[in-house]
Amino acid sequence: MQNIEQRSDKHESTFNNIIKFKSLLENQVYKKIAYILLLLFSVFLPNIVNNMYYMGIINYMILYAILCMGLNLILGYTGLLSLGHAAFYGLGGYTTAILITRYDFGFLPCLILSGIIALLFGILLGLPTRKVRGDYFCLLTIAFGEIFRLVAQAWIDFTNGAMGIVGIPIPQIFGWSIRTETDFYYLGLILLTFTFITLSLLVNSKFGRAFIAIREDELAASVMGINTAVYKIIVFGIGCFYAGLAGSYLAVYQTTITPSNFRLEESCLMIIMVIVGGMGSLLAPIAGVVVMTIATEYFRDIAEYRMLIIGVIMVTVLLFRPQGIFGTSAFKS
């Protein structure tokens, strides 16, 4: 009897500790300190990790983190399922690759233009959300993704077809030439910080609330004075902008771009990362990115079974935490 009481006491105290921890994080000062510590850790990470192979994996994680945070805005906040996100990623990649290799653009203008072109095409694909809803819209995004890949493959004069564009030169920003894995890490970190700051400004404004309202109940949202058609187009454009940035980063990082970088599988992988990490919270998708990247790298020897492993991880996570690792309760089944 005593034993049980003691145990329940212990249980309660851990529970209280968790609550305390949560309320600590809600305190603005502690939150700021946590962010600063995280940033410091990120800045000094290359000094801790000396292995170039690991740095490469971390760079890919950053790349996917940017992609998934953008996708999360569309999928997690607004509730629109887009299976064509790889197309916008590819649009960014090809914009940078073509402008750098053929027209001798600097990297920075390429990066910005890649984002803007992905944004414009995002708005274009967002237009049909007015009439086409739910599953049908999802089909439309798959079609767009496939059309993009096929055009990139077939338009040989412009994109060099299935061979892709090779030999993208080392990027330079204000005299900083980005060569090593560590350099690319810092470039990625800057882009990721930019993504985080701009997204958190957006989601904490009336726009972010409007996106959530559309996800929760579109009809009620329109009665609240939210122009749902326009907001869905805006969210699509902005989400795709980050995909364009990530594509640009991929182009200079890999130094080659081929249509097979942007297959439907890639879109699916991003969605899985967002779902596993957790939808509807800004940083949660990063957890999904980390888990999925580490898992696929760890099981590299059996690469043919990659999709199988991804599937198992996804099912396991969804069984135990339907809302994803750090998701909000909105996605609890």
Partner: peptide, 28 residues
């Protein structure tokens, strides 16, 4: 038709949407 998965305060803030005069430019 309340928005079920967000807080009470956020629900009311969404109701205030059309009276909050903030553009995308102001956000950034």
């Amino acid at each position: 038709r309340v928005f079920p998965n967000i807080s009470v305060l956020e629900n009311v803030l969404i109701g205030l949407h059309c009276r909050i005069d903030v553009s995308l430019w102001d956000v950034y």
